[in-house]
């Protein structure tokens, strides 16, 4: 284990990442996960000396692949490190080399081999109307594929709003009877909603599992409390302007340039639970409110209906 760790640090240094940078990241992740500081070194161990990489099967249903894309934007650890060193990604249609029946074969083998042990990450909603006719893989409906895989998983993570709650295709009139994975299969899933979700929250959930061998604490909607415990509004850097009654009334205005509160432009921060203002997106580069656009409430169930029209204030 010590040797492995040393090798890991050597590799990191070759990539221009010092041990200090790495520990800083582990501290950030530990804090995001809501664990106390004593866990930092154990979080580091998860990356530095992983035991057997836990098998992961990633299923794509009715989706836009934006969630997989968001996962590929993970920059610490980089996506290639997650795939090559942290987890054993047995099936992922967006990046896997095999196609056709060879791909189907991979899925079958993976489920057989890791029965009861793999983590299933799901992306996208499941069509339930017309026997699930609106989406198929290899001639089988999403519902059939889900039923043949998910019951054998140790745990199922619904990554993104579609897998968590149905998402955009479930917006009224929900033509295909789309549902979130948990509801479609009547099981409990760990939900990491967002459109897209932040990869930091997925990594945090996986690390939590590798570290403590259990899953993080969840709210009543199945969302990890470390990420979805507070509203966007409560964590918003523009909150002071709200209290002071300083509001933007038109995009591109002086008030917008001053960074005042977007409440009257339709911001849904007060009714949305997520950690966007704290972790932000793309390696902390920004988040919608920072770019001057109101929050749309994308991590809440039915937000396409309950939060729209998006540019009208409540």
């Amino acid at each position: 284990m010590e040797r492995k760790k040393e090798e890991f640090y050597t590799r990191l240094e070759k990539k221009g990442v010092t041990r200090r940078d790495f520990m800083k990241y582990c501290t950030f992740l530990t804090a995001t996960m809501g664990l106390n500081a004593s866990f930092v070194s154990r979080v580091a161990d998860v990356f530095a000396a992983p035991r057997q990489r836990p098998p992961v099967i990633w299923l794509n249903f009715a989706e836009c692949t934006g969630c997989a894309e968001s996962f590929l934007r993970s920059s610490y650890p980089w996506a290639d490190e997650i795939v090559l060193e942290l987890i054993n990604l047995e099936y992922q249609e967006t990046i896997m080399a095999a196609s056709g029946h060879q791909a189907e074969e991979s899925l079958k083998q993976a489920v057989e081999k890791h029965k009861g042990k793999f983590i299933c990450i799901t992306e996208g909603a499941i069509a339930t109307k017309y026997d699930g006719a609106y989406g198929k893989i290899g001639g089988r409906t999403f519902l059939e594929v889900a039923k043949s895989v998910i019951p054998h998983a140790k745990a199922t993570i619904a990554y993104g709003t579609c897998a968590s709650f149905g998402g955009v295709q479930a917006a009224k009139p929900n033509p295909g009877g789309f549902k979130g994975v948990g509801e479609a299969l009547d099981i409990k899933t760990i939900n990491i909603p967002g459109c897209p979700p932040n990869p930091v929250n997925l990594v945090g959930t996986i690390v939590n599992y590798l570290l403590l061998e259990n899953l993080p604490q969840l709210d009543s909607l199945g969302r990890p409390l470390f990420a979805y415990g507070k509203t966007v509004h409560d964590q918003c850097p523009r909150r002071g302007h709200f209290e002071a009654g300083e509001f933007v009334r038109e995009f591109g205005s002086k008030e917008a340039e001053n960074g005042w509160c977007l409440y009257h432009m339709g911001c849904r921060g007060p009714m949305t639970y997520n950690n966007c203002p704290i972790v932000r997106f793309n390696d902390g580069t920004s988040w919608p409110v920072q770019a001057g656009h109101p929050c749309m409430g994308c991590s809440e169930p039915d937000f396409w209906d309950s939060m729209s029209p998006f540019y009208e204030s409540f």
Partner: peptide, 8 residues
């Protein structure tokens, strides 16, 4: 554990 490079 070939992961995404399996069965190609």
């Amino acid at each position: 554990q070939l992961g995404p490079f399996q069965n190609a």
